[in-house]
Amino acid sequence: MRSLPDEVVQVEHVSKDFILHHNRVDSLKGKVVGLFKDRWRTRHEHFHALSDVSFTVRRGEAIGLMGRNGSGKSTLLQVIAGILKPTSGRVITRGRVAPLIELGVGFHPELTGEENVYLNASLYGFRNKDVRTRFDDIVEFSELAHFIDTPVKNYSSGMYMRLAFAIAVHLEPDVLLADEILAVGDAAFQEKCHDRIASLRRNGMSIVLVSHNEQQVRDFCNSFVRLDGGRVVETGTFRTKTAHAG
């Protein structure tokens, strides 16, 4: 096991403004006409998606980001993942951070399951040789051995999700950033997903889980940050139930 500092994610005074483009004009013609005609001009409005958010995730900790729709929790996840740059403040991450914001990102329907495994894992910065050593585990976990050499356009949505999830949980990240998704498939497969995540956590993986489902956060996380209107309104820990956390 590598020696990482205890704080794997540090979010320090992060603010994120979006510019809302009302009546957005992206064409050259529109820009030129906009110089003369009000109706063609884009109006800009600054929208504060996140304001001065700070928290720390320690090694092996699972933290739930809670809040209603539009409270900024998914934006925060994208900032932690490095996809969006904060307007001010900073995020420090240590170790391998795997964003599980959407399953099967980068899957190409015409490629086979096997080709998509390599393609998808390489988007997360994995070398093909590292994927090769895990390939059999990924296929076994996904229960798709019989279909792995057929194009994923022929997969059912359940098969698709199973493969995507199997890849994500075999990347062995130090921090898993998940947007609502921690299990896919039928009840039996979901159980397997939970077991896999629990075993990764025993090995020191941290989780940042975005959810508006209080029960889901209670099931998986030992602490939580509640956002409202882009601000942290409540933080706390769960004492009681950590059954899945192992």
């Binding site: 932690i80 490095g82 991450t93 391998r96």
Partner: peptide, 16 residues
Amino acid sequence: MAKTLEHIPLSAPSAG
């Protein structure tokens, strides 16, 4: 875990 993986700062925003 992470037996043979080299450390890659996957999402470090400054990674370039």
